[in-house]
Design a binder for these strands. Sequence first.
DNA 1: GTCTATAACCTGATAGAC
DNA 2: GTCTATCAGGTTATAGAC
Lengths: 220, 220
Amino acid sequence: MLTTRFFHWEALKQLAMAKKKKAVEVSLSTEEKIKAAASMVFTKKGYAATRTRDIAEEAGINLALLNYYFRSKEKLFEIVMVEKMSKFFGVVWQVLESKAMSLEEKTGSIVANYIDLLNANPDLPIFILSEIRMNPARFASRVPLSKVAGSDFMKQIKKQRPDLHPTQFLMNLLGLVVFPFIMKPVLEQSGMLTEKAFQSQMNLRKELIPKWVKAFLKTA
Amino acid sequence: MLTTRFFHWEALKQLAMAKKKKAVEVSLSTEEKIKAAASMVFTKKGYAATRTRDIAEEAGINLALLNYYFRSKEKLFEIVMVEKMSKFFGVVWQVLESKAMSLEEKTGSIVANYIDLLNANPDLPIFILSEIRMNPARFASRVPLSKVAGSDFMKQIKKQRPDLHPTQFLMNLLGLVVFPFIMKPVLEQSGMLTEKAFQSQMNLRKELIPKWVKAFLKTA
DNA sequence: GTCTATAACCTGATAGAC
DNA sequence: GTCTATCAGGTTATAGAC
């Protein structure tokens, strides 16, 4: 299950649907409000810099309710983190074992899906990757990262370029797609790109990256 | 500083400490010890998750001394951060205005220098980039990011590929070089690369990346 | 379920002895 | 310069009224 029912905009979508069905059900449940707020605040500030008060305020509820529903900051964070991780890695998971797709098709799918996902959630990567670094072991147990190593995807890469370690390809592909979002604050602060220009350049990359990747695969 | 050496028990204490934590060398002044410890702990945990007590312990000194020398956690962090930023961006600064170098030479220099720097300081990028995101404005004023935009380097890129926004090249180059270090914990946790293998693959990239960059300068 | 009030703890910073 | 002891303020979590 890659989609997350309680994620902010998902929840909003549900709200819209609820409105259409029954005019009575106007608002999100308190639990959903807290989770949506937590998702937002944790992603923006990281675990350590987030205070439970920030989340409560963002959710428009009382601080005590947070503990009533989720017991602790830590437990709430775990829930949010698992959802974010499956979002972030889901783009790659989707493609690992589809034997029907060529390497090029898989690359194209990853590029397009990632850029759409990240245009909508620009600070997902830096959040995920810095929280993983803070506590690598904790998250290894929660997300089956190991299934990448033996996947059909990796075998296809290996077949195409037996001379290179397949992670070289993976680093290139993800670097081209994900890294711009990590650099985004720097690019914008330096005045090289506005927020709008960034997004449009990223959309351009949906076409450009697959060509570049193709070029790598042929480069001596 | 040297006088302490004449006191037997002081020397023994220092020796024991040096054995226990090899992080900070015995011969450093207290101020330097604190700074070195701060550099290490801040980089590993980030500003918010770091407690001044962690730094004091790592430095093998008392908590009060931290404030005696640096007044506050915030001021100590600023000092460390400025050093880290000039390290991280220095690789690019070096090359911005050297009119004698071709674009290819500059690329080669950036690739080789970055990989050496980051092999020695693997979590420099994620530290810098996540702290910038937490507080973009603060650091914009301390590091002349804007000088990239109008540099000779950018002009050379523009000349080579007038059809593309020059940041596209910059994102590619830095993505290929820097992103693997941001992904490092994931690659290692997933069992795709050991620490040693990672480093050797990165050294390989010193040769590979310039070829790839050359290839996409020509790719339609 | 939701609130207010508060307990219990942690953290940055300082006072003052040596 | 360096230490111990402690303060002041903030943070998580809970108790108890409604």
